[in-house]
Amino acid sequence: MEVPGLFNYWMAIILMMAGLYTVIARGNLVKKLVGLGVFQISVFVLYITMGKIKDGTAPILPAGPVDGVVFSNPLPHVLILTAIVVGIATTALGLALVVRIHEAFGTIEEDDIQDIEENEA
């Protein structure tokens, strides 16, 4: 069984669009952050797929001779490793903002917040 040539990219794009739609269409701020996370991981899948070489193995060099062993590309791994940790940092900051917004407005629904702001203005 083979993975059809571009299948992984297409799935990554479907995930990406599911995340993007969650961010656009849902008014709940926590939901928006989860959508952002879905989007983020789809980008990771895209990158890691690009680094994969058929019949390759993880880029950890064994002690012995390495002739004939195919290693997958380590570069996307490094990029995504850093991206994951930056992702949690932004998520944490976003959640902290959501908590503060809830304390200030009593709601985390986008349209309710908008109503409150309009009434105050």
Partner: peptide, 13 residues
């Protein structure tokens, strides 16, 4: 980050 979240008072307004 976790401690700050966890020690936040839920009734704080």
């Amino acid at each position: 980050i976790f401690f700050v979240f966890a020690s936040r008072d839920p009734s704080a307004r």
